[in-house]
C-alpha cells in the first residue's frame, strides 16, 4: 500500500484529529471565541473529547492497511488505479490544507475586509429597537459597545447623545464617506459563529488618524459624543476623542 493509499484510507480520522486538536487547543487557550458563540463552547469541547476517544480507538482497532479483498477487489483495472491515485492526492491536499489552516496559522478575528463586504451597521437584528428604547434615560456608566451603537443608529438623537462620554474598544475601520477625518471603532455581533457576524461601529472624528493608526489595529477610545464638525460626512454624530490607546486584541473580540 502506497503513502497515497494510506492517506486515502485514513483521511477521515486524520481530519477528525486535526479538528479535535484545533478545537481543544482553542478551548484551552480561549481561542474558541474567535469562531463560535460562547453558548456552544461546552458542547463543542465535549463532542471533541468524545471524537478524540473514537479516533484513538480507530487507530487501535482498524487495520492500518486495507486488504485487497476487503472492499475493492479490482485494483488491476487502470481506471480504478487512476481514480485511487487522484483520490489519494486529493486526500493529501485536503489534509495539508486543514493542518495549515487549523494548526499552523494563528487564529485571527474577522477584519475590515469583512466589514466592507457586509456593510457597517447594516444589520437591524444586531441592534434591537426595543433594547434601544430601554436605554434612553438609563444610567450610561454601564453601557456596552452595542448599547452605544444602538443609541446612535436607532435614533436616540444628537441632543440626547451630545456631551455624553464613552470609553469603547474595537477594530479601526475607515469611514467610507470621510476616510481622512473619521474612522469607525468596529466590532462584530455574532449570533452563532463568525459566518453570521454583522459589523457594528461608532464613528470617531480624528483628522489625520491614518498617520497614527493602521486599519485592522485595535484601539481603546475615550471620547465625547458631539455633532460631526465635517457637515459633509455621512455621520451626524461622532465621538470626539480625548485619548486613543492602541491595545491588544481582547480575549472576546466579538459582541453577543
Amino acid at each position: 500500500m502506497s503513502f497515497r493509499q494510506l492517506l486515502q484510507r485514513w483521511r477521515g480520522v486524520v481530519l477528525c484529529l486535526v479538528g479535535v486538536v484545533a478545537t481543544l487547543w482553542l478551548g484551552a487557550t480561549g481561542g474558541l471565541a474567535l469562531y463560535i458563540h460562547p453558548r456552544y463552547f461546552v458542547f463543542t469541547v465535549v463532542m471533541a473529547v468524545i471524537a478524540a476517544v473514537l479516533v484513538l480507538a480507530a487507530f487501535a482497532i482498524v487495520p492500518a492497511r486495507e486488504h485487497s479483498h476487503e472492499r475493492h477487489g479490482h485494483e488491476q483495472a487502470d481506471s480504478h488505479q487512476r481514480r485511487r491515485r487522484l483520490t489519494g492526492a486529493g486526500s493529501g491536499l485536503i489534509i495539508a490544507a486543514a493542518v495549515t489552516a487549523l494548526l499552523v496559522l494563528p487564529p485571527s478575528t474577522l477584519s475590515t475586509a469583512t466589514v466592507t463586504q457586509r456593510g457597517m451597521n447594516g444589520s437591524t437584528s444586531a441592534l434591537p429597537k426595543a433594547d434601544t428604547a430601554k436605554l434612553v434615560g438609563a444610567d450610561n456608566s454601564s453601557f456596552t459597545f452595542r448599547d452605544w451603537v444602538s443609541l446612535l443608529q436607532q435614533g436616540a438623537g444628537t441632543q440626547y447623545l451630545e456631551g455624553k462620554q464613552a470609553t469603547v474598544s474595537g477594530l479601526v475601520t475607515p469611514d467610507k464617506s470621510d476616510p481622512e477625518n473619521v474612522f469607525f471603532v468596529a466590532r462584530f455581533v455574532v449570533t452563532c459563529c463568525a459566518v453570521d457576524a454583522q459589523p457594528i461601529g461608532l464613528p470617531v472624528y480624528r483628522p489625520g488618524w491614518k498617520t497614527q493608526f493602521q486599519p485592522d489595529s485595535w484601539v481603546e477610545v475615550s471620547a465625547t459624543f458631539r455633532a460631526n464638525p465635517n457637515t459633509g460626512g455621512n455621520e451626524r454624530t461622532v465621538l470626539i476623542p480625548t485619548t486613543i490607546i492602541p491595545i491588544e486584541r481582547p480575549a472576546e473580540p466579538y459582541v453577543y
Binding site: G19, Y35, M47, A48, A101, P107, S108, L110, A194, V195
Partner: peptide, 22 residues
C-alpha cells in the same frame, strides 16, 4: 485581509459544524 478572513470563515464553519457532525 480578505485571505485571512477566508481562512477565519472557513475555520468557523468547521469548528461550528464538527460537534454536530460527530
Amino acid at each position: 485581509a480578505a485571505a485571512r478572513d477566508f481562512v477565519s470563515l472557513s475555520i468557523s464553519v468547521i469548528i461550528e459544524s464538527l460537534p454536530f457532525v460527530f
